[in-house]
Design a protein around this nucleic acid. Structure first.
Lengths: 204, 204, 204, 204
DNA sequence: GATGAATGAGACTTCATTCAT
DNA sequence: GATGAATGAAGTCTCATTCAT
C-alpha cells in the first residue's frame, strides 16, 4: 500500500546496490576477480568498505550477484529475440543481431560473463556455474527448437541435430564477437554473413 | 656447439624445468592461478621455493611459460594435422580429429588455456595474450588456406570468406569440446558430424 | 522532589536501562565481552544502537554498569545475610546459604562477576576492579567482624586472624560453588559441610 | 644420533618459540587476549608476523600453547611438592609453599592461568579448558590422598571428606595469593598460618 | 528523542619474494 | 647452486561509534 514511503527507501537501496555492482563490474572486467580488492571497489563506488558488506556478505557473494544479474539481462534479451521474428529465418537473424547488440552494449560484463562460461569458472568455487550454465542451455534449447521447427516445416534440411546446430550457431556468434572484441575485424553488420554458413553448404 | 657436455647440464635443467611446469599445471588447472601458492608448486615439484625462482623470475613468469609451452604443443599438433591429409576434405577431418585428440590428452592444460583465451585472460596482466593469439591466428589462417584452396579447386562453393569459415569451424570444434568437457554429450567420434554442418547447407 | 511527575519519565528510563543491561548480561555471560557486538545487544534489547549509546557512553561503560549493578545486588544480599542470623554460628550459616542462593539465582552474572574478580579483570582496562574489590572487602570485613565477635564472646578459639578466617570461608564457598557450576558435585545443601571445616580442626 | 647437528637447528627453533611465547605471555597477561594483536606480539618478540604463523597456526593456537605450557610447569611443581615432604603435615606445608613460590615466580602467567580456571575461560572457545581442568583435578585428588592417608593413620580427624578438604586448602591458598597479588597483604611466609585453619578447629 | 545506515580503523591471516647458509 | 626460514605488504572482513533523518 505504502507505495510512496517504503519504496523510497527501497529504491535508494537499490540505487546504491547498483552503483556498487557497477563499480565492481568495471574493476573485475578490467583486472580480474583476484586483482581487485574490496577496498578498491568501495572507493570506486564511493562508499565505505563496511557499507559494501551491508549489501553483500562477502566478496564472492558480490561477484555472484554481479554475474547473476548480468546473465539475467543477457539471457532475457536472447530469449526475447528468439520470440520476435516471424518465421524461423527471421528468428535466427534476430538472435544473431540480439547477441551482437547485447554483447557490444556490455563489453565489460561480457568479459566476465565468458570468463564464467568458458574456462575460468573454476577460479570461483562453483555453485554459480551450474545456475548460469542451465540458463545458457535454456537459450540453446530454445534455439534448437527453431531449427527443429524449420525442419518440420520443410524449410531446413536435416543436416544435423537441431541442438548441434544451435550449439554451432551460438559458438559461431561468440567466435565472431570475440574477434571483434580483440579488434581483429568487425562483427558483421548483417546477420546473414554468419547465417549463410549454415544455410548454404560448401559442397552440395 | 658442445652438444655433448653443455647440453648435459642443459638437459638436466630442462628436465627440472619440465617438472616444475608439470606440477604448476596440475595445480593451476585444478585450483586456479590465484588459489595456488609458490610454496605449493615447489612442494609438488619436490624443489625448494628458491629453486623455483632460479627458473622463473616470479609467479607470473612461471604461468606465462606454462601457457606458452602448452600453446606450442597445441598449435604444433594442429598445424601438423592440417598438413597431413590428402585433399581439402581430409585435411579438415584431420584438423577436427587433432583438435579433439589434443584437447582430450591435455584436459588440465585446456582448462587453463581457455581460461586464458576466452575471457579470464585479464587475470594476468596482458603481454601473454597477444603472443598466444598470434599463434592461434596462424593456425586459423592455415585453416583458411585449406578452404581457399578447396574453393579454387572447385571443391567448395564460395558461401563465405575462407577466414570466416576457418573461424567458424574452429569455434564449432571448441563448442563441442566444451560440451564434452562439461559432460553434456560426447565429442563426436566421427569428424563428419561437425564437418557436415559446413558441407551441406540447411536450405539450398 | 517532584516524586510523581519527573520520576515517571525517570522510571521509564530506568526500565529501559534495565532491559539493556539484561540483554547485555545474557549475551556477555554466554559469549564473553569481546564476542558480543553492540548491534547484538541492541537487537536483543529491542532498541536501536543509537539508543544504547544514549544510555552508555560506550561498550566499556555498559559493561562496567552491568558488573556494578550485579555486584550491588550480590553484596547487598550478603550483607543482609550477615545481619540476619541470631548468634555468630547462625550468621555464618546464613552467609554460606545466601552466597549459594545468590550464586545459583544469577549464574549468568556470576560467570561475568568472577571473570572480573578472578583473573580476567584485565580484559577491561581497570578502574572497575578497585570499586568492586572495595565492596568485596566490605563484606569480608563484616564477615571478619562476626568471627571477631565470636572470639570475644568465647564461642570461637583464636586459631587465626578474623580477616583470614573470613577470607578462608569466602574462598571455600567460591570453590564449592565453582565445582557445582562445572558440574563436578553439588553445592552442599547444608551449610554445615562447609562450616565444619572451620569449626572442628583436623588434629586437636 | 646426530646430537650435534639436528638439535642445533632444533634448539634454535625452540628458543624462538620460547621468545614468542614470552612476548605473548607478557602482553596477554597485561592487556588480555582480545586486546593484544598478533602484530603487537610479533613486534615484542622481534619477529615478523609471518614468522609467528610459522610456529602457531593462529592466535588461538598460540594462546593455547601458552596456557598449556604454563599449566604443565605449574602442575608439575605442585605434584612434586606433594611427594617431597615426609609425613602428611610436611606434605601439606610443602604444597602450600610450592603454590606460593610458583605463583610468585610467574605472576604474569598466573593471571592468565586463573583467567582460564576461574571465570573467563569461556572467552576462548573451550577445548583447552577440559584439559587444564583435568590436570587441576589430578593435583586435587593427589592432595585429597594426603588427607585420606592422614586420616587412615589416625593423624587427622574425619571432619570432612578428603576431596573437600583438598578443595578447601587449595582455594584458601588461591584466596591468599590473590590478596597478595592485589597488594592487600603478603602471602604468609609460614605455611602454618594457612594450615592452622584446618588443623585446629574454631570450637571443639 | 529514537533510529539504524554509514563509516573506517584495525584485526587476523596469507603468500610472493628474498637472502643467509 | 640449492635451500627454506623469514619477511611484511596487502587482502578480507568486523564492529564500535556517529549523525542525518
Amino acid at each position: 500500500m505504502d507505495e510512496q514511503n517504503l519504496p523510497r527507501r527501497e529504491r535508494e537501496k537499490l540505487r546504491q546496490r547498483e552503483e556498487m555492482l557497477n563499480a565492481a563490474l568495471a574493476l573485475f572486467s578490467e583486472k580480474g576477480y583476484h586483482n581487485v580488492s574490496m577496498q578498491e571497489i568501495a572507493e570506486k563506488a564511493e562508499f565505505a568498505v563496511g557499507t559494501l558488506y551491508k549489501f553483500f556478505r562477502n566478496k564472492e557473494e558480490l561477484y555472484k550477484a554481479l554475474i547473476s544479474a548480468q546473465a539475467d539481462r543477457f539471457h532475457e534479451a536472447l530469449m526475447q529475440a528468439l520470440g520476435d521474428g516471424d518465421g524461423e529465418l527471421a528468428q535466427l537473424r534476430s538472435y544473431i543481431q540480439a547477441k551482437g547488440r547485447v554483447f557490444m552494449d556490455n563489453v565489460a560484463c561480457v568479459r566476465l560473463y565468458f570468463a564464467e562460461n568458458r574456462g575460468a569458472s573454476f577460479n570461483i568455487k562453483a555453485g554459480l556455474d551450474s545456475a548460469i550454465r542451465e540458463r545458457c542451455d535454456v537459450v540453446l534449447r530454445r534455439l534448437a527448437a527453431v531449427f527443429a521447427q524449420g525442419m518440420d516445416s520443410g524449410l531446413f534440411r536435416r543436416t544435423a541435430e537441431p541442438y548441434h546446430l544451435a550449439l554451432a550457431l551460438d559458438s559461431l556468434c561468440n567466435a565472431f564477437l570475440f574477434h571483434w572484441l580483440e579488434g581483429r575485424h568487425p562483427y558483421p553488420e548483417s546477420p546473414d554473413i554468419i547465417l549463410n554458413i549454415f544455410l548454404h553448404g560448401l559442397m552440395d
